[in-house]
Amino acid sequence: MTMTVSPTNPLLEKLASARELPTIPAVLVPLLRYMEQPSDTLDIQQLVKLISQDKSLAARCLQMANSPLFGCSHEVETIQSAVVALGLNRIQEIAVSCSLLRLLPAVSFGVSPSVFWAHSLACAMVAREFASRIGFSDPAKAYAAGLLHDVGIVALLWVSPHDFRRSFEYGSSRRIPLHEAEERTLGINHSECGKIIATSWHLPADLVEAIACHHSPAKAIGNPRLTSIVSVSDLLCRLGGLGYGYTEDKQTNFAEEPGFAILAAHYRSLHPFDLARFTFETEGLLEEVRAVVARVYGTAQWA
């Protein structure tokens, strides 16, 4: 996909020219780079040091590591022991997830920050699991893409909080998907904003594409499977009650969803696929995400 942005909307123009776009949390850069590397080439001590020296990040990571969501069989008290108990990949996922919190404002912006984080975390977990079920080669990448898929909301909020709140209220009062509400009220949606910020952060091209196209996976040309996994996972989370804090009154037939259709064309494992069972499993997972977010972040209004 092309990395250049040609804004045609005043908000996108504002975003593209904004000198003070939110910067990527410093710790995320090496963490995402590590996630691109094969595990056996990673310097474990370097990773442990990176996380441990950031006290608040380390504390949150340990809370997550000790939650049922990641499932340490015994309580761990240091990042080093968490790596031993859960493995490098899980610790990277946890650290990336906690780093995302750095981007969020402290107060509600229509969507409460904890709801936003819960949705991102849930999408990451579901994307990773769905990816491995269907045979996608890089479930860790699916996790990262799921976690970051909505950074466009952060960007939109940064340049125009008033506009974001307006579209959020439009969507929540009509119970329609947020990206549709944004399109109707602002003429763009957060995935377009996400493309700008993700590009400015120099994220890997397939992550930028997943962020840019998760509401229009047919437009993804670089790694359409990754984008489609995120698209399907995002929808499963929103339908399962972990969206943006309100219920979307819609009926979805996944067989007709573009993302699902793209994956169905690639993977034999989807013929047939027990989506009912996967949905029930996801419901259980979403409950655990709510619980861990409440513990790590504080309680929130779920819907």
């Binding site: 499963l236 339908l239 219920t247 979307e248 979805t252 027990d274 989506l275 069972r277 949905t279 419901e283």
Partner: peptide, 24 residues
């Protein structure tokens, strides 16, 4: 809740509604 028709019937299609599923 949590009941499925997978492997029982292919004529019905699963649809997702907010926090529940149904068949059409």
């Amino acid at each position: 809740h949590s009941e499925s028709l997978f492997g029982v019937n292919d004529d019905f299609q699963l649809v997702h509604l907010p926090s529940c599923t149904a068949y059409v």
